[in-house]
Structure formats: C-alpha cells, structure tokens
Computed example of a mutant assay.
Amino acid sequence: MAVRQVQARGIAEQCVPFARAARELELKPREFELAVQLGEVRTVSSGPGGRRRIAREEIERHKSAEGFPKELRTRLWVVGTAEGAELMGISPARFARLARGGCFAPVRFYVNRYRVVVWHYLASDLVEFADRNPEMLTGRTPALLRAALEKHPDRRARSWRARRLDQLTAATGDPWERAAVPAAVLDPGELAHAVPDPGERAYLHALRPVLARARPEATAAREVIDELVMAEDPDEIDWHRHCLIAALTEARADRPAPGCHTPTGSAAAPQEPTEPERRPAPPAEPVPGAEPTMPARPRGLWARLCGRKRPPGRDRAPEATAGRRP
C-alpha cells in the first residue's frame, strides 16, 4: 500500500490539472475539452478517485511540435452547417443531407434557446470526406444515400453517440467501466433485460460516464440532452446490448461487482442478441450521368487544413461513423 501511495504521489507531482494544461497549450476551455475527448491531449489517472490530469511530458510534446499552437488548434477546428458547407463548396441543404445520412459524424453539439440541437463537425473530417468522395458533392444524390435517408431520416444523433462511446471506451482500461459505456445509452427497461442482477446494474449506474454536459440551470437543455444520449432505433439498441453483454463477460471474469456474491462468470444473463446487420456508409460510387468533379472551395480554408501535419505517434481516439458502429 505504501509503495502504491508513493507511486501515485510521484505521478501527481509530474502532472498538472486541466485548467493549467489548457493555458499552457493555449487552448480555450471548449477546445481543451474536445482535445481530451479526441485523444489529441492524453490524460493519466492521478490522485484519489482516479482523477484525470495531464502529464508534464504530454504538454512538452505538444509545445515542442512544429507549428504549435496553430497546428493543434487547426486539428480541433469545428464548424457548423453553414461554415461546413462553405468549406466543402456545397450548399447548406446538400451538406445537411450528407450529415443526416451519416456520411460524417458530429463531434459535439449544443441546445439553443429554442430547444433545437445545433451540431458541430471537425473541419478535418469534412476535408477528408470531400477528398475521398468528390462525386458525393455534385450532381444527383446517390441512390444509396437516398435509401439510407428514407430508412433513417436523421442519423446525426446516432452518429454522435457512436463516436462518443468509442472515445469513452478508449479512455478506460477497467473492464467494469468499459461495460458501463454501452449501458449509458440504454433505457432502464433495456438495461434490466441485459443485466438481470440489480447489484450489477447499480454498479454500472455508479460508473456511468457523462456523454454530454449541460449547465445545471439549463433545465430545458438537460431534457433534450437526456433524450439525445439514449439509443433509439431497434438495431442500434440491439448493437449496444450486444456490446454490453460482451463487456460484462470480461468484467465478471475480472471481478464481481461490489455486493454481488455470485461466483465470477456465473451471473445470469439473457441470451445474447444476434449481432445486428452492419450498415456500411454509402460508398463513393459515381451516379450515372453525374460528373465527379470537385467543386470550387474557399482556398484559404481548404489550404489551412490540407497543409496540416499530424505529429508522429499521436494517439487519437478512433472516429466512429454511422454504419460502422452501431
């Protein structure tokens, strides 16, 4: 115990809190929050309760990188619908169709005073999508995208959930905390079906990660967010139940939940649902009669991102796009 305390004290002395790290990295609070979520800025567990901090080595790694802090802030550049459409050289209406169809996943959102969800996207994601799929930006909407929109008129919330769950899963090494990630998007009824043991459900609830935060006084926004973080479509719910049951198997093998005396690995569980069909994102196939030419884009915005360099060995959380997971 004494050795662990000394080690923990040593780690804490080599780390700095989030607010100080943000100042040293010349990032605004929301930029820093996004950097942590994306894995651009890596955190370590330090202090009681697993409190997360930033290692001094991580800060120095960024500060010594070429182009700091401009390159780091460019990788964290987020845009809304209007600026995203301008960046890609398409109309806002076409941009909205691509986003609703799950062609790229939102990275964050906010709820405005009219209780409308306003989505934001990583500018680098839009650049990469446009470079890979120029034919999706001109001509008629591809048939596969039209079919996807008919089945799921708006996949933005689903795409964001998938991406956020990937981020949270990548941020933890504890098996019970990993199991709590898919559990966080299942309503109480679905969770009870997947996890019959009330002790295990209580433990998962205690470990439940926060997918999105709202100001305490923003009651209306909180209600919208509470709805948005829950899985909606049956196939999405089945996928997250599948992930939860698989994660529970690993967690039970590691240790029982506190207060549960069921022998490890023998806790009752429903039959694992069949893995839902994975719906790939619409492939970039030219529509007959459509000329796959790249439309003109604002040179300054485009060059700013296309000229960026990714630092070697950067450990960024995997992106989740709609159709891959769930």
Results as ranks from 00 to 15, higher is better:
Trp119His: 10
Glu86Lys: 13
Pro69Ile: 04
Phe129Val: 13
Trp77Pro: 01
Gly139Tyr: 04
Thr138Asp: 07
Gly67Ile: 00
Lys151Ser: 13
Thr138Ala: 07
Asp125Cys: 07
Val79Tyr: 02
Leu98Val: 11
Glu135Tyr: 09
Trp77Glu: 03
Ala82Glu: 15
Gly67Cys: 03
Leu98Ile: 13
Arg75Trp: 15
Ala123Ile: 03
Val107His: 01
Gly67Asp: 03
Ala82Ile: 12
Gly84Phe: 03
Pro106Trp: 06
Asn112Met: 07
Asn133Ser: 14
Arg140Glu: 11
Ser159Trp: 06
Pro69Thr: 04
His152Thr: 15
Val107Gln: 05
Ala96Gly: 15
Arg75Val: 10
Leu126Asp: 05
Arg146Gln: 10
Arg146Ser: 08
Leu145Phe: 04
Trp77Gln: 02
Pro92Ser: 02
Ala157Gln: 14
Arg100Val: 13
Arg73His: 02
Glu86Arg: 14
Leu145Thr: 12
Val116Ile: 07
Arg113Gln: 10
Gly102Leu: 10
Ala157Lys: 13
Arg100Thr: 13
Arg113Tyr: 12
Arg156Leu: 09
Leu72Met: 07
Val107Pro: 01
Arg140Cys: 11
Pro106Val: 10
Arg97Trp: 07
Asp125His: 13
Val107Thr: 09
Met88Arg: 00
Trp119Leu: 09
Glu86Gly: 15
Glu150Cys: 06
His152Asp: 13
Ala143Ile: 11
Ala93Tyr: 07
Cys103Met: 10
Tyr114Arg: 05
Met136Thr: 07
Ser124Pro: 01
Leu87Ile: 01
Gly102Arg: 05
Pro106Met: 09
Phe95Asp: 09
Glu86Val: 13
Glu150Leu: 12
Arg161Ile: 14
